Computed example of a mutant assay.
Amino acid sequence: MKVLFLFETPLPDFTTHPALPEELLVMAALPQVTAIHALSPAALISGSTSLPTQLQIPFKLHQHRFSWPVGAIFYYLTWLGLLFFGRRLCRRYHFDLIQAESPHLSGLAALLLTRRYRLPFITEYRVNYPALLNFRYGPIIGGWLTLVFHTFSLFVFSRSALVAANSATLASWLKHRHPHLRVAYYHPGIKPPPITPLVSSRRNLDFLGRLHPDKGPDLFLQLISLHQTWFRAHRCHFRLAGIGPLYPQLIQYCQVHQLTDLVTFVGYVDRWTFLSQTYLLINTTLVSPALEMALIEAAALGIPSVAFGSKSMPETVISGQTGFLVPVYNLDRLFAHCRQLLTDPQLYLRFSEAAKIHAQDYTFAGQVKKLQAIYKVVYA
Score class of each variant (00 low, 15 high):
residue 11 L to W: 02
residue 12 P to Y: 04
residue 13 D to E: 12
residue 15 T to K: 14
residue 19 A to H: 13
residue 21 P to Y: 07
residue 30 L to D: 09
residue 32 Q to K: 13
residue 33 V to T: 01
residue 48 S to W: 01
residue 55 L to T: 11
residue 70 V to G: 00
residue 78 T to I: 00
residue 86 G to M: 00
residue 88 R to L: 11
residue 88 R to T: 02
residue 105 L to N: 08
residue 105 L to E: 03
residue 112 L to Q: 05
residue 112 L to Y: 05
residue 119 L to Q: 01
residue 130 P to F: 10
residue 133 L to Y: 10
residue 134 N to S: 11
residue 137 Y to H: 12
residue 138 G to I: 03
residue 139 P to E: 05
residue 145 L to I: 02
residue 147 L to E: 07
residue 147 L to N: 04
residue 150 H to W: 12
residue 152 F to G: 06
residue 163 V to F: 07
residue 167 S to V: 13
residue 175 K to M: 15
residue 179 P to N: 03
residue 182 R to T: 15
residue 182 R to M: 03
residue 182 R to I: 10
residue 191 K to T: 06
residue 192 P to S: 09
residue 200 S to L: 03
residue 204 N to T: 14
residue 205 L to Q: 06
residue 205 L to T: 10
residue 213 P to E: 09
residue 224 I to T: 05
residue 226 L to F: 04
residue 240 L to P: 07
residue 240 L to D: 00
residue 241 A to M: 14
residue 241 A to I: 08
residue 254 C to D: 07
residue 255 Q to W: 10
residue 255 Q to N: 15
residue 263 V to F: 01
residue 265 F to W: 10
residue 272 W to I: 08
residue 273 T to F: 03
residue 276 S to F: 03
residue 287 V to F: 07
residue 289 P to K: 06
residue 293 M to F: 05
residue 294 A to L: 03
residue 308 F to W: 09
residue 321 Q to L: 12
residue 324 F to G: 01
residue 327 P to G: 04
residue 335 F to C: 05
residue 340 Q to H: 14
residue 344 D to Q: 12
residue 351 F to T: 08
residue 352 S to Q: 09
residue 376 K to A: 14
